[in-house]
């Protein structure tokens, strides 16, 4: 059985809000190391991989593997009934067909309980190959989100070029074209505004900006984002969590 407690419901609420628009029905695999979710988005262009390590919970117990088959939007709907600073407990018996969520306020004089019906979902699992990425960029999550949002005014696609000079985001559409270039830099005051580039060889890939804007909804989860790219392969975009991560594998657009 699974019993997992978070000191603040907001920790789970904001993660589910960040991924709910991309996903539908998915399995959350729970075991002694924590909760893991891997699911293709509806377009099959992005694979979302979420890991919530057991040490991120104030109490965690999962003696045998439990699979929570649910619709992520139903989970988001139920989580909206929790206040951000409520103590949140997830409970599910082995082979149960429901997930019990309880929300307690810190003075413990109010407790809500919701039972979310679980489903049997046979979802396609993709094997994520170990990839040596030619380029790794660590930058501010908010700056990436803002840069891509600006370029989405010009086009539905962005080209990202990384070389030793820096990282350039560019887009071209009917009304014209635009680009933003960032040099590697270290910001001593705000480390998150640093641009750190590790490069084994230059790389340039193009991506759909609509899906990218869904991905950067995770900017609320982490102050920095790690972008990894290599020619002809999906990009890996990672937002680190206090004990885990939200990772996206994003298929590029290819010159036909």
């Amino acid at each position: 059985m699974l019993e997992a407690k978070l000191d603040a419901a907001s920790q789970l609420k904001k993660i589910v809000e960040a991924i709910r628009d991309m996903l539908g029905e998915c399995n959350i695999e729970c075991n002694e190391t924590g909760l893991a979710l891997q699911s293709l988005d509806k377009s099959h262009i992005v694979l979302v991989s979420l890991l919530l390590g057991s040490d991120g919970f104030s109490e965690y117990r999962c003696d045998r593997g439990v699979t929570l088959g649910l619709n992520i939007n139903s989970l988001a709907t139920v989580l909206r009934c929790a206040n951000n600073d409520d103590i949140l407990t997830l409970r599910s018996e082995d082979r149960a067909n429901e997930l019990i969520l309880t929300f307690e306020d810190s003075k413990a004089d109010r407790i809500s309980e919701f039972n979310l019906r679980l489903m049997d979902i046979d979802q396609e699992y993709l094997a994520i190959p170990e990839t040596e990425y030619a380029a790794t960029v660590v930058m501010s999550a908010a700056v990436l989100q803002r840069t891509l949002r600006d370029l989405s005014a010009l086009s539905e696609a962005v080209t990202i070029e990384i070389d030793k000079e820096g990282i350039r985001f560019s887009a071209e559409g009917d009304l014209g074209k635009g680009s933003t270039h960032f040099k590697p830099c270290v910001d001593m005051e705000n480390a998150e505004n640093s641009i750190n580039i590790t490069l084994s060889e230059p790389v340039s890939l193009s991506f759909n900006l609509q899906y990218f804007s869904n991905i950067t909804k995770a900017s609320s989860l982490s102050s920095t984002v790690t972008l990894q790219m290599t020619a002809g392969m999906p990009a890996q975009i990672e937002y680190k969590l206090p004990s885990g991560h939200v990772r996206y594998y994003f298929a590029p657009k290819i010159e036909d």
């Binding site: 699992y125 190959p129 999906p234 657009k253 290819i254 036909d256």
Partner: peptide, 14 residues
């Protein structure tokens, strides 16, 4: 025009 390809082209289902 760039062609969008799906992840299935890169990652095979296990």
């Amino acid at each position: 025009e760039n062609l969008q390809i799906s992840l299935g082209e890169f990652f095979d289902s296990s």
